[in-house]
């Protein structure tokens, strides 16, 4: 048994279509991929929010002035 559906390359390539593993599970793969993508945005929003909250309190007036001068 092979995950790609072929145990051997003793085939006529004119009759071969997809050769990726787990053919027939494309829908599931898309669901997993979309979960990964959406989860990434969620994590990113939360972390950036936390970071900005902390960053708001960080600035030292003198250092900010020198940064503004630096352009």
């Amino acid at each position: 048994m092979s995950t790609i559906g072929y145990d051997s390359w003793a085939v006529d390539l004119a009759e071969v279509g997809p050769v990726y593993p787990f053919q027939g599970s494309e829908g599931l793969m898309v669901v997993l991929g979309v979960i990964f993508w959406i989860a990434w945005h969620r994590i990113q929003f939360v972390r950036e929010g936390e970071h900005l909250k902390k960053a708001k309190q960080m600035g030292d007036r003198e250092k900010i002035h020198s940064l503004l001068e630096k352009y």
Binding site: I4, V19, Y20, P21, F22, E26, M29, V30, L32, G33, F36
Partner: peptide, 10 residues
């Protein structure tokens, strides 16, 4: 050479 693109991503 053989993966599905979503498999490659994961």
């Amino acid at each position: 050479d053989l993966y599905h693109p979503i498999q490659a991503m994961l």
